[in-house]
């Protein structure tokens, strides 16, 4: 009996050690540049938020090399119609220059349930959060992006957590880039703080020097707006 018990304990400890080692390895490797990615393109998930967030993100997308970051999958909260409209306007402006048949392949637009709407009660939030997580998981299984770009809307947190889980388990290696919103001058947003502290983001960019001084692992990149 004690043998079985000891064996079970040993097995648990071993499994725990393997998982922790794997997580440490993933965090370490994420912080280093990718070594064996050649000239091919990467599928890119772009998480949009409302208003200012979306404008900043689209400014970034506008200067990316489009043939490298393709296909581009835009995702926004299901309650936010404006963001995807603006993204598709940007994509349409790119198509004008080339053939327009490939547009549907190069850019995809998706909506995601939000875990909590402004003003929603905390009790009903539990149910909606659960639905939002399952939906995020479903979308991430479908997309399995190689690159994730996000800048602060709450919807990016579950998506990035799932992406990190995929990295640990070995389903998909995705590089996660987080740009803190320009509106954050002195303190990170809650989403940003979570992804920074948990070391989920491969690279973390801030737009104000005082933020960089406070959070040492971030990169100061100047203003995007």
């Amino acid at each position: 009996m004690t043998m079985v018990f000891t064996f079970a304990i040993t097995l648990t400890v071993a499994a725990f050690t393997v998982i922790v080692t794997r997580i440490i390895y993933v965090v370490y490797k994420s912080s280093k540049p990718l070594s064996k990615l050649g000239p091919q393109s990467v599928s890119t998930l772009i998480v949009l938020g409302s208003g200012g967030h979306t404008a900043e993100m689209l400014n970034l997308v506008a200067v990316l090399q489009k043939d490298k970051f393709t296909p581009r999958i835009y995702i926004a909260a299901s309650t936010d119609n404006m963001s995807l409209q603006k993204a598709s306007a940007l994509e349409a402006s790119l198509v004008d220059e080339r053939d327009d048949e490939t547009m549907s392949k190069k850019a995809l637009f998706m909506q995601i349930y939000r875990s909590r709407e402004v003003g929603q009660s905390y009790l009903t939030s539990i149910g909606t959060t659960l639905i939002a997580i399952i939906h995020a998981l479903w979308l991430m299984i479908k997309i399995r992006p190689q690159v994730i770009l996000c800048n602060g809307p709450g919807t990016c947190v579950p998506l990035c957590l799932i992406a990190f889980f995929f990295k640990v388990v070995g389903i998909r290696w995705s590089s996660i880039f987080y740009v803190e919103s320009i509106a954050r001058v002195r303190r990170l947003s809650l989403s940003g703080l979570l992804l920074y502290k948990l070391r989920i983001a491969d690279q973390f960019f801030v737009q104000w020097p005082q933020l960089q001084r406070k959070y040492r692992r971030t990169h100061f990149v100047g203003c995007l707006m």
Binding site: Q65, S175, F177, V221, G222
Partner: peptide, 12 residues
């Protein structure tokens, strides 16, 4: 500047 750092990280 952000795009350049992203490219560098990805080996582009």
């Amino acid at each position: 500047p952000v795009a350049k750092l992203i490219n560098k990280h990805l080996g582009f």
